[in-house]
Simulated scan of single mutants.
Amino acid sequence: MPNERGPTLTADLFDAVRDVRPSREAMAEGAVLLRSFARPFENEVIAALREVIAQAPFRRMVTPGGHQMSVAMTNCGSAGWVTDPSGYRYDGVDPNSGQPWPAMPAVFRQLAEQAAAAGGFAGFAPDACLINRYAPGARMSLHQDKDEQDFAAPIVSVSLGLPAVFLFGGAKRADKPARYRLEHGDVVVWGGPSRLFFHGVAPLADGEHALMGRQRINLTFRKAQ
């Protein structure tokens, strides 16, 4: 008969518990990977995420060069990042609805502020959250986050769902990027000397995540204005 109390605390289960404890990994000066940092927030974050998406659904935007992004995205906060044939920019209005972007949920802001502080950037006050959805095969080419007005503030990037390979390079596009496997709940924070480093995401491998299904969601918090 199965044990109705659930699994016993075997060595494997102890390992699983240990693996979700937050840990800190230096990536570069001003850049840190906070393993499992978002896990304590996951239920509230996922619930809030669903509310944001209901108001501002995902869409695949078109770059100024006419290329449709493989990543679908939306935004929340007082400013949202958009791209179209006229260029890249932040806008307070969702171009699909003509309405302001959904307000940033309190749990989003709390997670971003605490992660930034853990990464060495106390006082972070994000006003924009870019929400990217990666389906299997979707990728993000190497780029800099340079459309913001305030480069003194860090970037806080939260991973949910399927694992992804994060590419973190240097100040020049030609700099060879390091590769980091990001799991559900991992958070990357970079700023200061690393604020304008090139970064991207390798094509997402197929899989099934217990909470998020066949996708990866990335929340990127910024001080845009």
Results as ranks from 00 to 15, higher is better:
residue 172 K to R: 15
residue 25 E to Q: 14
residue 24 R to T: 15
residue 192 G to M: 10
residue 121 F to Y: 15
residue 40 P to M: 11
residue 183 E to I: 00
residue 180 Y to D: 01
residue 93 V to N: 03
residue 180 Y to V: 12
residue 175 D to Q: 02
residue 37 F to N: 03
residue 5 R to Q: 13
residue 38 A to Y: 01
residue 202 A to R: 12
residue 103 A to C: 03
residue 192 G to E: 12
residue 183 E to Y: 10
residue 174 A to L: 09
residue 103 A to D: 13
residue 225 Q to T: 14
residue 114 Q to T: 12
residue 132 N to V: 02
residue 7 P to Q: 11
residue 17 V to G: 01
residue 105 P to F: 10
residue 220 T to F: 02
residue 31 A to K: 05
residue 175 D to P: 03
residue 140 M to I: 13
residue 207 G to L: 12
residue 161 G to E: 10
residue 180 Y to I: 13
residue 13 L to Q: 06
residue 114 Q to P: 00
residue 160 L to A: 04
residue 127 D to A: 10
residue 19 D to A: 15
residue 161 G to A: 05
residue 66 G to T: 07
residue 143 H to Y: 05
residue 30 G to P: 04
residue 150 D to F: 13
residue 8 T to S: 15
residue 169 G to D: 05
residue 21 R to E: 13
residue 212 M to I: 14
residue 94 D to H: 10
residue 15 D to V: 06
residue 194 S to I: 08
residue 17 V to T: 03
residue 133 R to N: 09
residue 134 Y to N: 06
residue 30 G to V: 09
residue 127 D to Y: 05
residue 78 S to V: 13
residue 146 K to W: 10
residue 161 G to H: 04
residue 14 F to Y: 12
residue 70 S to E: 14
residue 143 H to E: 02
residue 183 E to R: 14
residue 149 Q to A: 15
residue 101 W to S: 07
residue 40 P to F: 08
residue 203 P to E: 06
residue 55 Q to W: 00
residue 135 A to V: 13
residue 185 G to E: 09
residue 19 D to G: 03
residue 216 R to L: 08
residue 138 A to V: 02
residue 191 G to P: 06
residue 127 D to N: 14
residue 58 F to T: 11
residue 149 Q to C: 08
residue 57 P to W: 05
residue 43 N to M: 00
residue 64 P to L: 07
residue 73 M to S: 15
residue 145 D to W: 03
residue 147 D to P: 01
residue 122 A to W: 00
residue 22 P to Y: 06
residue 22 P to V: 10
residue 171 A to Y: 01
residue 162 L to V: 05
residue 200 G to W: 03
residue 61 M to H: 03
residue 110 Q to E: 15
residue 192 G to Q: 11
residue 35 R to P: 04
residue 127 D to F: 05
residue 70 S to K: 12
residue 124 F to W: 04
residue 68 Q to S: 09
residue 125 A to L: 12
residue 141 S to Q: 12
residue 48 A to P: 04
residue 130 L to Q: 02
residue 221 F to D: 02
residue 182 L to N: 02
residue 180 Y to S: 08
residue 148 E to F: 10
residue 209 H to S: 03
residue 123 G to C: 09
residue 153 A to H: 02
residue 176 K to A: 15
residue 56 A to H: 08
residue 207 G to S: 11
residue 13 L to A: 09
residue 171 A to N: 10
residue 16 A to M: 13
residue 84 D to H: 06
residue 132 N to L: 12
residue 142 L to M: 15
residue 76 C to I: 09
residue 26 A to S: 14
residue 116 A to F: 05
residue 198 F to G: 04
residue 175 D to A: 12
residue 216 R to A: 10
residue 107 V to Q: 11
residue 125 A to Y: 00
residue 123 G to F: 07
residue 39 R to Q: 13
residue 33 L to D: 11
residue 181 R to C: 11
residue 20 V to G: 00
residue 166 F to W: 07
residue 152 A to D: 13
residue 14 F to N: 05
residue 29 E to D: 15
residue 113 E to R: 15
residue 135 A to C: 06
residue 86 S to K: 13
